[in-house]
Design a protein around this nucleic acid. Structure first.
Lengths: 348, 348
DNA sequence: TTGAAAGCGCTACCAT
DNA sequence: ATGGTAGCGCTTTCAA
């Protein structure tokens, strides 16, 4: 059996309290006794207080949960998510807090159970869409919570994000300003179980994922202002946020008659996929969203949002809660980054 | 106060055991009673058994620790490390296990404390070098452990990795075969506190990091076989595994008189940095290590090792321990990937 | 400066 | 099918 604190106490001939103090409150006993205790512990192979028991007694854990409302293994595949995580890690590191990455099963009740079983002091939720049940589970546990989707945040929640709609509007306005009128909008899982390819949508609001919804709405705003009504815009669904999925989804649209002169994607990864597929369509304008590292190399026009900073602030909101709850909702700035993937409408 | 299991028991008028069973062993009570209990729990706002208390009682946690023997925030910056993590996550996901990412402070005793305080059932250690004290702490806790560095593995440890030396030998042989004789080897933190730039090393063994050591030794093997003795080889130190650090470290070497005709880097990230710095030196052959995604786009000749698979196997070794301990040491295959960044020695 | 007592919230065994 | 009992290993008053 592993030795316990009690064993050390017995060996030294002191009480458990004293051994406990030797570890957690060195000022509560003489240096000599402490040394003696630590020494005995070493001899017995006692590795120090059991983290679980300590957490139970103390009532807190020293770890924050990070939830991606998508496959965990997928999250590592998404450059933006990884940078967000890096930011979270940076702040956690500073606080000596660990990060518990909790895989979320797709089924709601199992997802809820996963949340219920996580030994953490609070959660950062990287929202992809379809997170309400997860957030509900966290709130039910009475744990603090920060989300990245404003629509998802309850008044008591903390939030850090961007104005998705305004940001999307800014790229779209740039594209509209270049004269594009025949455009396609590309999103990941625009409708839950839709097949890849073009889609009928009564309006941006039909997209259940708040992020997608916000971005589509922003795109629509700008084109509406340029005289292009929603029905004239093609919405294209990709089955996943990957280059391959994007390429597969957009190919038939580009190959159709009356193809768009510009494609506005809801993420850089998707935009890169469009570029992959657009090889034979030079002159096509393409925009992304996020400004991941690959975007620059590809010359992608996009909207930059501060990825690491978003993560840092999310963690900080959890680990250094603002005194005034009103400071718990942070809106980050975004920048339109114009590169070479957008240009005037080609005359043909 | 948050309600406890006891409160639910009182409310329903049953014992704690029964409530516990309602959650953890549904087959131990009638469906009707169970429904009644769960219902009361919902009404009271009882979120289910406390994870910490449950772990204490059950003696296991349902989480595995992942340790990077470097800054945690740095790990997310390293494409190879991220892919490793993706692999770990994939398997953890399948087992319903969470991943606890533990930031390691630089100071040894604080690092040990971080390990001691982690509530996990075992550790995957992604070895960068200088991990002995960390591994010792894990062993002292009696927790199972898988490393990625064979040198670091004690007999009881599990291990998954590659034959660093042989892999390095394969790229170096390719370069030597192209006729290169004036070569530089580039590594991250070849010596602990060395400044960026060329370095004197009595031999590969002087590099304390086992991975660096192994790769340098492999490079040396191949050149020795080609008639280039160790002292004729320039070893260059980069202050970090980043493109910028690599570029800064290699620049003076390329600018010196008698510059190398080939640079062999210990990682793709470093190699990419060399390429950045080599703009004005066309004809320079450069090799990397790992075959990250960016390598292909850059035309980098490198050694591929299966990143996600390494992570998957590491997690599997922990979560599905092999019956025969002898199966706990896995050596993964590597492949030489020749692209355009290497070529014959330019005649000048 | 040290120790005794009282749980933290839960589960597993053994009865009934 | 349900309940009683006995801790899991630790920390924290409080008293000595």
């Amino acid at each position: 059996m592993k030795p316990t604190l009690q064993d050390v106490a017995n060996a030294v001939g002191v009480s458990r309290s004293t051994v406990s103090n030797a570890y957690s409150r060195p000022d509560q006993l003489s240096a000599a006794l402490r040394a003696k205790i630590l020494d005995a512990a070493r001899r017995l192979g006692y590795p120090g207080p059991d983290p679980t028991a300590r957490s139970l007694r103390r009532g807190f854990v020293g770890a924050i949960g990070v939830l991606f409302t998508s496959e965990l293994s997928y999250a590592f595949t998404d450059p933006f998510a990884v940078r967000f995580l890096a930011g979270v890690g940076e702040v956690a590191e500073r606080h000596g807090a660990s990060l518990l990455l909790v895989p979320l099963p797709r089924e709601r009740d199992r997802a809820r159970a996963a949340v219920d079983n996580a030994a953490v002091d609070g959660f950062c939720v990287y929202c992809v869409g379809d997170e309400e049940h997860v957030l509900g589970a966290i709130r039910d546990r009475g744990l603090p919570l920060v989300t990245t989707a404003p629509e998802a945040a309850a008044p008591a929640d903390r939030f850090v994000g961007i104005d998705e709609r305004a940001a999307a509007r800014s790229v779209a306005a740039h594209v509209a300003g270049l004269g594009h009128r025949r455009v396609a909008l590309l999103g990941d899982t625009v409708l839950p179980d839709a097949p890849p390819g073009p889609l009928r949508l009564a309006g941006p609001g039909d997209a259940p994922r708040p992020t997608t919804h916000g971005r589509l709405a922003g795109f629509a705003d700008a084109f509406a202002a340029a005289g292009v009504p929603w029905p004239a815009i093609t919405v294209v669904n990709a089955a996943g946020n990957s280059r391959a999925a994007a390429a597969a989804a957009i190919a038939p649209v580009l190959a159709g008659d009356d193809p768009p002169t510009a494609v506005l994607a809801c993420s850089d990864v998707l935009a890169l996929g469009v570029l992959d597929a657009a090889g034979p369509h030079p002159g096509l304008s393409v925009t992304g969203f996020d400004d991941i590292a690959e975007a620059a190399a590809a010359g992608l026009t996009t909207v930059r949002q501060p990825a690491e900073e978003k993560g840092r602030l999310a963690a900080a909101l959890l680990l250094e809660p603002p005194a005034d709850p009103a400071d718990g909702h942070l809106l980050l700035p975004t920048d339109l980054v114009v590169r070479t993937s957008t240009g005037p409408v080609p005359r043909s």
